[in-house]
């Protein structure tokens, strides 16, 4: 059986209902387990002290913030090429999850940055890129909300997602260029990026990343189901209105 058969909303809902309990359970185990392991089961960093432990929230959230956009890009392409409604709705459903992940990454970054760098915010290339990503998410969601016809909204947001992806990548490199240009290469390093993480920190981090991935998947499946039911309700209402 082809994977495309799950593009049928009813089949998708059926599969999604079967998978979701396992996803929720597994993500809860991984996130809670990973965080407890990370917070209480690992030693303090000799330089950063206990503040380093925020990476167990910060890194997975940042990872999912980017992956959510990437997923929206893929599902937008599928919608544009194959016109599967579930795909467009999955992109719509992923956007708010992506925004929250981006916000978590930004806020935890600020909280971590305060003791480490002595400032809540620095125009570090990485932080700046996330702020720009946040703006792209806002625009994408606002466009979905503004267009009345759902198929037109799916079309327009898909193109915005494609164009936005190109510009997001461009912005990423522009920001790197810009900050190095400003600071002559003395920008504050973000700890997780360049340095290698010791195994004792790495395994709980990996567990958290897996957990956030599963959580993202469960949230997107759940929200896509809601969007499908909303569209179904609208379709039934439109037909009933015609019959009356």
């Amino acid at each position: 059986m082809s994977i495309w058969s799950y593009a049928n909303p009813v089949k998708f809902l059926g599969l999604s209902a079967k998978v979701q309990p396992f996803l929720w359970g597994a993500s809860a185990i991984c996130v809670v387990g990973g965080l407890i392991w990370g917070f209480f089961g690992t030693p303090d960093d000799f330089r950063q002290g206990s503040t380093v432990k925020i990476i167990y929230l910060h890194v997975p959230a940042a990872l999912m913030a980017i992956n959510a956009w990437f997923m929206m890009l893929v599902t937008s392409l599928i919608w544009l090429i194959r016109r599967h409604h579930v795909s467009a709705l999955a992109a719509k459903a992923a956007a708010p999850v992506g925004v929250v992940m981006t916000l978590i990454a930004l806020v935890t970054g600020a909280i971590w940055g305060q003791p480490m760098w002595g400032t809540w915010w620095a125009w570090d290339p990485r932080l700046t890129s996330f702020l720009i990503l946040f703006l792209f998410y806002l625009g994408y969601i606002a466009l979905w909300e503004a267009v009345e016809d759902p198929d037109t909204a799916a079309d327009l947001t898909s193109i915005l997602c494609l164009v936005g992806s190109v510009f997001a990548v461009l912005s990423r490199y522009a920001v790197q260029f810009w900050n190095q240009g400003l600071h002559q290469g003395t920008s504050i390093p973000v700890a997780t990026g360049g340095r290698s993480v010791a195994d004792v920190f790495f395994y709980p981090l990996l567990m958290c990343m897996v957990g956030f991935g599963l959580l993202f998947l469960a949230l997107v499946l759940y929200r896509t189901g809601t969007e499908i039911r909303l569209r179904r309700a609208a379709a039934l209402r439109a037909r009933a209105g015609r019959a009356a």
Partner: peptide, 14 residues
Amino acid sequence: ADGALVGASDEAFL
């Protein structure tokens, strides 16, 4: 006709 299935985009959801 009401309820006709002709390939309209809302039919995927009926």
